[in-house]
Write a protein that binds this DNA or RNA. Structure first.
Length: 813
DNA sequence: CGTACTAGTCTTTTT
DNA sequence: GACTAGTACG
């Protein structure tokens, strides 16, 4: 029996079709990954294709790794030779090699969105534009979509000629590009655009890649934009062995430039293309599939498909409605806990999916309270934390001398007495002489700076030069440690309190272990390589399905994943679909609907939809009607059907209406008394017994993004918590490598003011206490330490925790 | 030059 | 409500 026997007819057809263009329309859960990996195996084993000639492009690094692993299991050897990568890392690899052809050096920096903003802000200033009217974010998003469509600054300038606003945008675009180029930097979009540019201007370079990549596969093809398509088209060359896999119903990245035409027009570009539809779903039970089909049916622009399954009917879809988001979260947390306790699932089988990252907060709070282990993906990026950005800016400065942005970021970190005045002078000189900022600071006399100011600059210059020399021979981690040592960074950080300091130190440790991991795994570790890897990771890349923790993420992030139990929370019009899409029109609603379809089809066995009648948004309470998508699901599929209502029902009265009515959206924003903005402040929260948050000013700020159940977390400050991290938690730093920071005075220099050591009242064993996050509990023991007391508390619902009294804000009751 | 306070923006989604 | 950038003042 061969490994291809378990494939169905359509899947086999796709696997065995090796020559010529192939479009696979793969419905959700139709065994798409299996087809891709088997096809690669078939190419290697049966069609005698050299693995070296295969290129597979995926959406995330995680998907790339998985694909390689699965191919590895199918073919005996050679899978490491396959080039599996994301669009962005593929382009970086190519560009590093040929950067000179485009006027960059091969150690170019990659700018993230924060960097982009900084650059654009300077552009706006330089062009003397009104900062009130011209927002860097809006300009950047416009520029980004131009790049997605491969429109150059010059081309856009021509098309903008007659339009004043457009002309302004055009000049910003052009200035922004030259600023990047001067800094030897590329933004995310440039990676693709410049690779295409390279191929168009250097046919011999393109040729070398066409010769190498004789067989190309693109996963999640519905999410490619015009630039990415062009790249693939060029790479395919005359080989024409391009296989793309996608599902137009799962296209959810239009806002990022994804062009649905790429899928709809594939056959126009490749008239000889074979098209195969995979319509049998292997993932979900029939009820879930029926719900998904019922929702997506309401979209008009789609390739016709009919998902079917041989699976059993399964559970009904669960629907629950709550008064507010706290009750919603509490239900989900308890429902998961119950399911695990009854042996129906493992924590890791459960996923909580939401439309916006902000919704993770209330979920997190209740999960902590119920002692449910979880992991949140997305949200604030690990690498955008201040201390991490600082250290990376040092590394980038060392790596790429032309990166003005980074130099300016760290020139006064830690404080060296080099202020805005000096920086402005140096920048002016740099502009005048058309050189880099660093060059300018090496010659203070150019800017008429002497005495103390010049000395300080000289000191900084020497530091960077020394570190740069060190980087020539030493590993990135050694350089990183040297930076921390010489700048005394840890002790110089200005921190809010000890907890903040702990947080940041852990983040820095995390960065070091990430660098160490990179050094161990990379064939040829370099500083540029490390920085590149950091720039291109996604949070989701660290998802490990073998971990026993509830997964929290946006529906966008969940694409491509599957879970036994899925909770889709916040099913409210205004949240999902979002206000923006509702105001914009049908195309946007259809995209939201596809998102809903993606969410539903993540579930294998159990799908639970929840909705809160009242929800805090932007600081005030919103009363949103039930999501229209829930109404699109036939009521017989639910265990408890939602109260149906018509779209333009009478207006909503929170006091009398049982489950929310529906009001038209026309100008809801202008009409203060209208839909959506009933301010009732804390009275509402108070009534439901969840008002605690308004009093504690720290609110959730000390909250972790990762937690684990059980008592294994009983050492270290703020036990029970792990800091936010983008990394695989399985790879803990080995114990013996940890003491790195102990030589630096630890925390002693960090503690600011005396309020930290102030006792929270004398606690002793047996006292009943209340904690802002864990609720009530009993003190087990109190251990006095030099500055503080370590208190062990047995919480009624959140298990046993050890915490420092002064930070825990324990209230005696 | 550095700090502390204020005002504005944000929350739709991300490689 | 939370975070950030910008500004006024010491």
């Amino acid at each position: 029996m061969s490994m291809y026997d378990k494939l169905n007819e359509q899947q086999k057809e796709a696997v065995f079709h090796t020559e010529g263009p192939l479009l696979i329309l793969a419905g959700a859960g139709s065994g798409k990954t299996s087809v891709i990996t088997h096809r690669i195996a078939y190419l290697i084993d049966e069609a005698n294709v050299n693995p070296y000639n295969i290129l597979a492009i995926t959406f995330t690094n995680k998907a790339a790794g998985e694909m390689r692993e699965r191919v590895d299991n199918l073919v005996g050897f050679g899978s490491e030779q396959i080039f599996v990568s994301t669009f962005h890392s593929l382009c970086v690899r190519i560009l590093r090699r040929h950067a000179e052809n485009l006027g960059y050096t091969n150690n170019f920096s990659i700018y993230d969105s924060d960097d982009q903003k900084t650059v654009m802000k300077e552009v706006i200033k330089k062009l003397n534009l009104d900062t009130k009217h011209y927002k860097e974010k809006a300009l950047l998003s416009k520029i980004s979509s131009l790049k997605d469509e491969l429109v150059s600054p010059e081309e856009f300038a021509i098309s903008a000629a007659g339009d004043y606003e457009k002309r302004i945008t055009a000049s910003c675009y052009s200035e922004y590009q030259s600023a990047l180029k001067k800094s030897n930097a590329l933004d995310f979009d440039d990676l693709i655009v410049e690779a295409v540019e390279l191929f168009k201007t250097c046919p011999e370079v393109l040729n070398s890649y066409v010769n190498r990549f004789k067989y190309i596969m693109v996963d999640e093809y519905q999410d490619t934009n015009t630039a990415q398509f062009e790249l693939v088209r060029l790479l395919t060359g005359s080989n024409r062995n391009l296989c793309v896999v996608g599902d137009d119903d799962q296209s959810i990245y239009k806002f990022r430039g994804a062009n649905i035409r790429n899928i709809l027009d594939f056959e126009r570009f490749f008239p000889e293309a074979k098209v195969i539809k995979l319509e049998q779903n292997y993932r979900s039970v029939q009820n879930i599939l029926d719900a998904a089909n019922a929702v997506i049916r309401n979209n008009s622009e789609r390739k016709d498909k009919a998902l079917w399954s041989k699976q059993k009917e399964g559970d009904r879809i669960h629907f629950r409605e709550f008064d507010n988001s706290y009750e919603e979260a509490e239900f989900v947390a308890r429902d998961i806990k119950k399911s695990v306790q009854e042996g129906k699932s493992d924590f890791g089988d459960n996923a909580i999916l939401y439309r916006t990252n902000a919704q993770s907060r209330s979920m997190e709070e209740k999960l902590v309270q119920e002692n449910v282990p979880y992991k949140i993906f997305g949200g604030v990026n690990f690498y955008s934390r201040r201390e991490i950005k600082d250290l990376l800016a040092y590394l980038k400065t060392i790596d790429n001398a032309r990166d003005d942005l980074c130099v300016k970021r760290i020139i006064n970190i830690p404080k060296r007495g080099i202020g805005a005045t000096t920086i402005n002078k140096l920048q002016a000189t740099a502009d005048e002489r058309n050189t880099t900022f660093f060059d300018s600071l090496m010659h203070p006399e150019w800017s008429d700076l002497k005495g103390a100011a010049a000395d300080k600059l000289h000191g900084f210059e020497l530091l960077i030069l020394r570190l740069r020399a060190m980087a020539e021979s030493e590993k990135p981690t050694a350089v990183l440690k040297e930076i921390l040592d010489t700048t005394d960074y840890i002790n110089q950080m200005d921190v809010e309190d000890e907890e903040d300091a702990e947080n940041r130190i852990e983040n820095i440790e995390e960065l070091i272990s990430k660098a160490r991991l990179y050094e161990e795994e990379a064939e040829e570790p370099t500083l540029s390589g490390l920085l590149e890897e950091i720039a291109l990771v996604a949070d989701i890349d660290s998802y490990d399905e073998s971990e026993s923790r509830v997964v929290l993420m946006t529906i966008h992030s969940a694409k491509g994943l599957e879970f036994k139990n899925v909770y889709m929370v916040g099913m409210e019009d205004g949240l999902f679909p979002s206000y923006n899409s509702i105001n914009q029109g049908d195309a946007e609603i259809e995209e939201e609907r596809r998102l809903c379809y993606v969410g539903i089809t993540r579930a294998k066995e159990k799908l639970t939809l929840t909705r809160a009648k009242a929800r805090m948004m932007h600081g005030d309470t919103q009363y949103n009607p039930l999501s229209r998508f829930v109404n699109e699901i036939p009521r017989q599929l639910f265990d408890i059907a939602p109260v149906t209502r018509k779209y333009n029902d009478s207006y909503y009265d929170p006091d009398t209406s049982e489950s929310g009515g529906y009001r038209r959206y026309d100008n809801y924003r202008d009409d203060e008394s209208g839909y959506g903005s009933f301010k009732r402040n804390s009275s509402y929260d108070g009534a439901s017994g969840y008002g605690s948050n308004s009093s504690g000013k720290t609110g959730y700020s000390g909250f972790s993004r990762e937690a684990s159940a059980g008592s294994s977390y009983s050492s270290g400050i703020f036990s029970g918590y792990k800091r936010p991290t983008a990394y695989n938690t399985k790879k803990e730093t080995p114990e013996e490598e940890k003491p790195f920071f102990t030589k630096m005075n630890g925390l002693s220099g960090l503690t600011k003011g005396s309020d930290l050591a102030k006792p929270t009242g004398d606690l002793s064993a047996g006292d009943r206490v209340k904690h802002i996050k864990f609720g009530e509990g009993t003190v087990i023991s109190v251990v006095k330490e030099t500055k503080d007391s370590k208190v062990t508390v047995q919480f009624d619902t959140a298990g046993q925790r050890i915490m420092y009294a002064s930070f825990a804000k324990l209230q005696k009751i």
